[in-house]
Design a protein around this nucleic acid. Structure first.
Lengths: 210, 210
DNA sequence: ATTAAAATAACCTTGTTTGGGTGATACGTT
DNA sequence: AACGTATCACCCAAACAAGGTTATTTTAAT
């Protein structure tokens, strides 16, 4: 069976036991092969371009440069590789930074061997594999706070303000008078207990009112 | 075996064949039961609160009020139910509106019966089940355009502007002079070919520069 | 080591925007 | 009848935005 058609995988993970466990898992699975395996980004940087992997399994807690910060650099070295984060960390900030930096999937380390293999396959097929809890957090990030004190119109106007539009322009686009927009804004400020555009936007975003 | 511990499911789907197919699938699977089954939101609205389902399978293309718009209303009727979208549509706008309105998962209709069952289970366990392609789109929505014409500092400043902060405040928070902020903004406007804050923010967001 | 790109800053002008106070009208729903 | 919501009016002073031009200092890439 030709190994050229196999999906080639690189691993960047500092824990030797885990790294070799993954390498063994992937190496013995038909259709998959290991192109390289490194304990840090610095080590990977030298050779990974030649490895030319299809998928990179990346840990977030690495010695030296962190996995999160390594993502854009890996993208430059191997632009067509998919990066799959594999980590114990489930902090929202980390997840969103990883995805924002260009990761195509995010798995936690309790993921079963079969699921890791299927995630590698899935990412090659245009999917975005995530552990269940991660997926929920990602979905949750799209959702609004139902208990907003703002009325529908106030919310609409605050959203417009958050796009940088002036009150005058908002008035024109909503076909209402500038004075009306000002009234709404005053009410918004009172309800949110703020005294400026920036603070209103911040409070509203923090509380998912917009 | 007690049916009280079963996961109870409601279905809102206008196509009778599909609806009854799902109902049969769920009804015959141990651990799951059908609490109700309706061809439209209007029909569901009358009885679904009494059904008190754990999970609602919801189609997006319904006669009368659309599935998307039904989500917030269903949330009011059955606040603790998880809503799973089950549809043929894969348009980004629809997906993000559904998730933003409170859906906890999004499956396409080619999903296998086994995966539908496991998605229902997953959503009860705190997951966010999505079809592979949907998950990729969701992840993609977090990612920036790598080909931005803006420098790091310009990007940073435009992000600050997008939070509604004044140039003066940005200068203070970045420990640079107001004149420097103004210089950066002029350069941003030139690069993006715009002449206002609002246009710069819109262009940058549309192109995922910020 | 050199060069190019990026970040920094100054000085100018004009018109617009913002935040705040106070009050009033109209329209639904409860 | 009372309430929340959306609408509009008139007042004020301070801050802000957009545009022009030029120039220096860092920092990163070759």
């Amino acid at each position: 069976m030709s190994r050229d058609l196999d999906i080639s995988v690189c691993i960047i993970e500092d824990d030797e036991t885990i790294r070799e466990g993954y390498a063994y898992l992937i190496g013995q699975t038909p259709g998959y092969k290991i192109a390289g395996s490194y304990p840090s980004f610095e080590d990977a940087a030298k050779k990974i371009a030649q490895d030319d992997p299809d998928v990179i399994l990346l840990d977030v807690e690495l010695p030296g440069i962190s996995g999160i910060d390594a993502i854009p650099k890996l993208k430059k070295l191997v632009p067509d590789a998919f990066i799959l984060i594999l980590t114990v960390y489930e902090q929202e900030l980390l997840i969103f930074r990883a995805l924002g930096n260009g990761a195509s999937g995010y798995l936690t380390k309790n993921t079963s061997p079969e699921k890791i293999i299927s995630a590698i396959h899935e990412v090659m097929e245009g999917g975005g594999p995530m552990s269940a809890h991660i997926a929920r957090m990602v979905i949750h990030s799209f959702q609004r706070n139902e208990a907003s004190p703002l009325t529908r119109r106030e919310t609409e106007i605050l959203e417009q303000i958050a796009t940088g539009k002036s009150r005058k322009r908002i008035a024109q686009e909503l076909f209402i008078d500038l004075e009306t927009v000002k009234s709404h804004i005053k009410n918004i400020y009172h309800k949110l207990n703020v005294h400026s555009k920036a603070d209103a936007i911040k409070t509203a975003k923090d509380n998912k009112f917009i």
